[in-house]
């Protein structure tokens, strides 16, 4: 069974942000009046909320541009993946970059792109050859290949 303070603390963020139901808010305020520890926690939450991270200038435009890009290119699908795969293979061979699967991929609600995180290591990471267990280009999605190419260009 939960102690009263636990129940209060569960809902403090909702109350501090002013989104709680009036009945909840009343009950919490009544508790805070007599409980110093919960009051301190409410003050901490208020302190945190005074300092959100501000979105930097220009990010919205940047995101919209990036988000619109793949959609506009969707019409030309079919040819692009092969082209990208060939280009990536060439670049990989030239640079001698190895792709190694990350041991435990994070669970993701998005199948595909997020399911196969990969890391690129430069020539300093070992021999330039593809190693057993390394990512085969055909297994990469179009997005991953594009990302890879974009990273190499930068």
């Amino acid at each position: 069974m939960k102690r009263p303070c636990d129940e209060i603390r569960d809902v403090l963020p909702t109350v501090v942000s002013g989104r709680a139901e009036p009945a909840t808010e009343q009950a919490v305020q009544a508790h805070l009046a007599g409980c110093e520890a919960c009051r301190a926690e409410a003050e901490l939450i208020a302190l945190l909320r005074r300092h959100p991270v501000a979105v930097p200038n220009g990010l919205e435009e940047q995101v919209l541009l990036a988000a619109a890009g793949p959609r506009q290119r969707r019409a030309s699908r079919g040819f692009l993946p092969q082209l990208v795969a060939v280009a990536a293979a060439v670049v990989l061979t030239v640079l001698g970059i190895r792709l190694v699967r990350v041991a435990e991929p994070e669970p993701s609600p998005v199948a595909g792109f997020m399911d196969t995180p990969f890391q690129a290591f430069g020539p300093w990471a070992g021999s330039g050859a593809f190693t057993p267990g390394s990512v085969v280009l055909e297994e990469l999605t179009e997005e991953q290949l594009e990302l890879l190419l974009a990273e190499m260009e930068s």
């Binding site: 940047q62 995101v63 988000a67 998005v110 997005e143």
Partner: peptide, 27 residues
């Protein structure tokens, strides 16, 4: 930003997140 602790990386991550999400809207 809270995951990465770095503004520039957070910009990239935010962009990646939207591109990934909008590309996967059907799912």
């Amino acid at each position: 930003a809270r995951v990465l602790g770095d503004r520039d990386l957070a910009r990239d991550a935010a962009q990646d997140a939207f591109v990934n999400a909008l590309g996967a809207l059907d799912r």
